[in-house]
Amino acid sequence: MSDIFESRGADPMLIGVMGEPFDSPDHIFELKQDGERCLAYIDKKGVDLRNKRNMRMNPKVPELADIYKRVKEKCILDGELLVYKDGQADFSEVQRRSLMSNKFKIELAAKQYPACFVAFDILYRKGSLTTDLPLMERKSLLQTVVEEDARIAVSRYIETEGIRFYDLVEKKGLEGIVAKRRDSRYYFGKRTKEWIKIKNLIDDDFIMPDRFMRQPIFKGIRFDKRPEECVPWLLKT
């Protein structure tokens, strides 16, 4: 069985460009949610959530074990694993969760701040890839496949008006938006220029303390504006 579903062999497409807000009839605009990118392999029996490094996230989010019941067909969904805190996605909470291993602590966290999977793309459906379909066709497919509830949602998008959408997102202090070409295809593992990230980020200088560079176990660094708060961030979880 070399089926990409069975082998869990899908690799998410990545945003390739950063840009300024723009309006375009050829694009749609989505909220850039501050969570952990995941692919969800869903069939009648259950869901298998894999992060970008293809690690199973299921043990970390037991509250999402039933989302497959809201999905009508066998499919691979691309989306973001989010934890909402005070009405906003909270990345540090997702990160805290992904570093937990004690089941009871995970259960407590799952009750206090339950996670949610927001699907924004569909890569496979009923035995065949959907990656060659234009984005808008995948979007409508996604809409028919998923029945939303508090644990699984389908990402909303805005047509054409990227600038007004961005202004609103900026005003609300959200992370940013992503522009995607309406006719774009999905290429596994590729950094695509057809997805453009428009980030609500204040320019600043960042300092990386030398001591973190020398620690080989850290594969990434999370920057903070103040160097004393520069926290090494374990990407290898």
Binding site: G87, Q88, C116, E148, A150, A153, I158, L168, V169
Partner: peptide, 27 residues
Amino acid sequence: EEAGQVIDLMEALKASIEQNKPKTKKA
């Protein structure tokens, strides 16, 4: 928790874009 906070937020953003469509075509 019926609707989900995520859906609420996304719907609210979408609605506010659609409601306040500018009268002139130019943004």
